[in-house]
Design a protein around this nucleic acid. Structure first.
Lengths: 252, 252
DNA sequence: GGCTTCAATTTTGTTGACGATATGTGTAAC
DNA sequence: GTTACACATATCGTCAACAAAATTGAAGCC
């Protein structure tokens, strides 16, 4: 249970305040508001900044600059850097400081391979545990996604995409899997960003997302696992196509 | 490639100096000797101590005591503690110090569920990439395991078990998966220990291990994935039985 | 002109001390 | 005899200064 701390703040956001009082109560046990103080402001700020792409890959992160930028001390900053290194977001080299870690296409593929099987597991478990309220929420989410695609609002669609995956995780209540998926996501963000903007991508992924919602809602674990796997297989294929194209162009 | 650093020291040990010169050469590319100096002696020492069970779960880790014990400074010690916390081996509470994190049976089950799918992925990939030399090594490993079981040397069998899994990972060369599996293993050690000593357990797991070796050696990815999954399903069942028995006894 | 060497500067590594918070103990009041 | 409060101690959190290492730039040499 103590394990939920890092995931709770993100998954709870999946519901976005739209749930009724009874449902809120239902989810409350899963939402651990305890925050590790060592997960200081600096850590959170720096992490989101890297995830947003405000620092380029391979860019050096100089301690004194960052202490000014985030108005903090070197002590707290270094603590944050240590954590980010363990998480795999940055690289620390002795006496040479920190760099934003560059994720190769090859590594992005590896990460997606893992996500495929782990999120498949999570989807199956979500199908076993889903409540009526959660089914309703998933339905709404699906409708919102359709609307976003029709309005060709790709940014919104991308957001809803992340929200769908987070919701499935939250339903599954599989703390260990959630932790790992979020760790992997942290390393993928820049690549995901690119992929979600590939033209024609929503045409492929939209039905896959709906299939996940349908399978989980019909409480069919096998179907849910297959639907989630199919979706991530499609992501994987897109990534491999990208890698292949890059290799052909001689960019690798 | 920079990603292999944390896994190299453990996977390289899998071969235990028993390989011929040509094979050693073959594996050399996979053994990255670069060590992050921030992964200081303190970190390694403390980590292995926790993994060996030298500190009981929930036991408090007092900074001044540890600095004496490991003859180091508080600075380096805290760095190590921060890393161990991110890794999930210990818990840090504000102004209340560090504790060894206790893994519940429930959590052990969750972790094994993840291992099942991720190690399945790794086994499939190992079957795709395995070389003749590696097949020979796997064969020897299988023979050693049979010998250990016949000699009822459970400690040796347990070691070889870990070595088999590490070897499969090494063959697969899936850095991201390796990293995650080893992270999960770190949290499981105390439970694994108990399980490996359950009477009659080798009778169940021995044929499963041999099936993994056979499937990988015949370069059949699907069979390898299924064999690995079957093995970890069996581990999972044993864990669930243990959890059920504990619940019946009122121990939970 | 290109290469090496050396020093100045930047940047990181480490230490010790001090302040803040929690915990344990003893005393007094009920 | 029990509870509540206050004090003392242990432990963690933070900082600022110092030491060590690497990078950068310029000068000298081939």
């Amino acid at each position: 249970m103590a394990n939920a701390r890092r995931s709770a703040d993100r998954d709870s956001a999946a519901y976005d305040g739209r749930t009724a009082a009874t449902e809120t109560e239902e989810y409350a046990r899963n939402v651990d508001t305890w925050v590790n103080p060592l997960m200081s402001d600096v850590y959170t700020a720096l992490r989101t900044a890297i995830l947003r792409g405000e620092f380029a890959p391979r860019q050096r992160l100089i301690e004194t600059e960052l202490t000014e930028q985030y108005a903090t001390s070197r002590f707290l900053l270094r603590n944050a850097l240590t954590r980010l290194e363990t998480e795999g977001l940055i690289e620390l080299q002795p006496n040479r400081g920190a760099r934003v870690r560059e994720i190769s296409v090859q590594e992005a593929i590896e990460i997606t391979e893992i996500r495929r099987v782990v999120e498949g597991l999570v989807a199956a478990r979500a199908a076993e545990r889903v409540t009526d309220a959660e089914i309703a929420f998933l339905h709404d989410l699906g409708e919102s996604m359709k609307a976003a695609v029709q309005a060709t609002d790709m940014l919104r669609y991308s957001e809803l995409n992340a929200q769908l995956h987070a919701t499935v995780r939250s339903i599954a209540q599989h703390d260990s899997a959630t932790r790992i998926i979020e760790q992997l996501n942290g390393q993928m963000v820049r690549h995901q960003f690119r992929l979600s903007l590939v033209p024609g991508r929503p045409t492929v992924s939209m039905p896959e997302h709906l299939a996940i919602i349908t399978a989980v809602s019909s409480r069919d674990p096998e179907a849910a696992e297959l639907a989630m796997r199919a979706h991530l297989t499609s992501v994987l294929d897109a990534l491999k196509a990208f890698a292949g194209a890059a290799a052909t162009r001689g960019a690798l």
